[in-house]
Nucleic acid binder design. Structure first.
Length: 493
RNA sequence: GGCGGCAUAGCCAAGUGGUAAGGCAGAGGUCUGCAAAACCUCCACUCCCCAGUUCGAAUCUGGGUGCCGCCUCCA
């Protein structure tokens, strides 16, 4: 069984066979940097990060390139509104994007090309399209002639004649009158006064939205790549136009597979800038009682990447509880390794997924692979993680409450490592609490309070007993009374 | 109008011809002075509706209903 990927281009799942078996080339459509990233972006890039991590784990070499669109109308408008240079805006939001993604444990791309860094190549590419008769100059603008590209519409399943009707409403726009065909789109836009502009054979101007991606794919990865990915809304017109440009210029397939992620909804409605119902990633992660970033990651992964997900407080609360279980499982080794007699718990590499060897033929790993091979079925893959985590959680509680587990320590170790490795493939990671002593109360103080409480309990002074329990609870210490009057305690994470 | 997607328990969500994963929530019990994110057990004879194919369908076919997305910047 090989990995099957749903290809938007063919509208079906296909076996994944990279053009070069030794190197998978991926281009991921990035953000336009004029504002903070929102939860929709989080969903998208968490999904693609998961795809990348899985391919890496399966042994592929992956070259992952993601662009920043750093010149466009919205950036210019923002720069005028705030009265700062356009590249001040873009620098700010590029940094913000990278910071947000780091919090969500999204791996850095191998390269982050920007539109404005490839202007000469864009001009060259446009010239190539003009030379091949695929584009025409009109009054300082350059347009792509869609009628010259016979398979225009193949990605989105549209036909030119069917789209004309819908375009009639925009004919009053001044640019429309310059076009030979209503669906023609700008490759180069002549500069208006005061706008950032670059010199070109057609006069001062800037690139259109779609051309940058064609050029950056070409520059970074070559004529043809394996996977091109982005949000569902990019299928048309963005990706359709990229295909027209790249294939129109190079006469080679732009990408073998096209992957598109589903949207984030808010109460059943699409989250978008135009509807103004979006939440930024940092607003979400920095609000009061905000969940850990991993909760957002888990929430995203609990649905298949192509399906819409609905954002609600209830859904987040559910993910939060789920993450707690997973986290306990992930921290199992750190918490109980010593007690189980594992000898390497102080090693620097302890707990590092890269240093773990797990049994690939074990049932959980096989089930995980089977799920992920089926077009990255993360909900099914997560079921495996939950089962492992619940098992470990149970054994951990036995160790805490009874002081021993009936399961063989090495078996537990295998289970734990399997969980950690598989979770890592999904980008789910828990870090052990740093310093236990720094939490404001020492072990000795705790023991002393437990002694006081024991005295109170013997005197049936329940009020005092509960006061001590609650006091410690506030300090993050949970007391567990066991049969025989013995009380143990744990620091809650 | 054109193209596409989805409908599975209170909620989220897998499964796509062989008799309903997983998560959240919930219920009962154990233990307990209390508490516990502890332990045990339970929780869809049923998969939007109707008709058909089949030994057998949530899964295939036809029809219907409902919801959503794209066709304009958008992950």
């Amino acid at each position: 069984m090989t990995l099957q990927i749903y290809n938007t281009l063919t509208r079906q799942k296909q076996p994944f066979e990279p053009l070069d078996p030794n190197l998978v080339k991926i281009y991921c459509c990035g953000v336009t940097v004029y504002d903070l990233s929102h939860l929709g972006h989080a969903r998208s890039y968490i999904s693609w990060d998961m795809v990348r991590r899985y391919l890496l784990w399966r042994g592929y070499h992956v070259q992952f390139v993601q662009n920043f669109t750093d010149i466009d109308d919205k950036i210019i408008r923002r720069s005028q509104q705030e009265n700062v240079p356009w590249d001040t805006i873009t620098e700010k939001y590029i940094q913000a994007y990278l910071d947000d993604m780091a919090r969500l444990n999204v791996l850095r791309a191998d390269a982050y090309p920007r539109a404005t860094q490839v202007i000469p190549q864009i001009i060259e590419f446009i010239q190539m399209l003009i030379d091949r008769g695929m584009a025409y100059v009109a009054d300082g603008d350059v347009y792509y002639a869609v009628e010259r590209f016979p398979s225009y519409g193949k990605l989105s399943g549209r036909q030119l004649d069917q789209m004309e009707a819908g375009a009639s409403g925009r004919l009053d726009d001044e640019a429309e009158t310059k076009k030979h065909h209503p669906m023609d789109f700008a490759l180069w836009k002549a500069a208006k006064p005061g706008e950032p502009a670059w010199d070109s054979p057609w006069g001062k101007g800037r690139p259109g939205w779609h051309i940058e991606c064609s050029v950056m794919v070409h520059e970074a990865l070559g004529d043809s790549i394996d996977i091109h990915m982005g949000g569902q809304d990019l299928i048309f017109p963005h990706h359709e136009n990229e295909i027209a440009q790249s294939e129109g210029a190079l006469a080679k397939p732009l990408s073998k597979y096209w992957m598109h992620n589903g949207f984030v909804n808010i109460s059943g409605e699409k989250m978008s800038k135009s509807l103004n119902n979006f939440t930024t990633i940092r607003a979400f992660l920095d609000r009061e009682n905000a969940p850990e970033p991993m909760v957002l990651r888990l929430f995203v992964l609990q649905a298949h990447y192509r399906k819409p997900i609905d954002f609600s407080d209830e859904a987040i609360a559910s993910a939060q509880n789920g993450w707690h279980t997973l986290k306990e499982g992930l921290l199992f080794g750190h918490q109980f390794g010593k007690q189980l007699g594992w000898t390497d718990t102080d090693d620097a590499s302890f707990g590092m997924p890269a240093a773990m060897r797990i049994d690939d033929t074990s049932a959980p790993v096989q089930r995980f692979i089977e799920a992920m091979d089926d077009d990255f079925n993360t909900p099914a893959a997560l079921a495996v993680l939950f089962e492992l985590a619940k098992d470990l959680q149970k054994e951990g509680n036995r160790l805490t409450h009874d002081g021993k587990s009936l399961v063989d320590p090495q078996t537990l170790r295998q289970q734990w490592q399997t969980l950690v490795v598989l979770a890592h493939v999904l980008g789910l990671e828990a870090t052990p609490a740093v310093s236990q002593e720094s939490m404001g109360i020492s072990d000795a103080e705790i023991e002393a309070l437990i002694q006081q409480r024991a005295v109170a309990k013997q005197a049936k002074n329940w009020a005092e007993s509960d006061r001590i329990r609650n006091h410690l609870k506030e300090k993050g210490i949970a007391l567990i009374d066991k049969p025989g009057g013995v009380t143990t305690w744990i620091r809650e994470s």
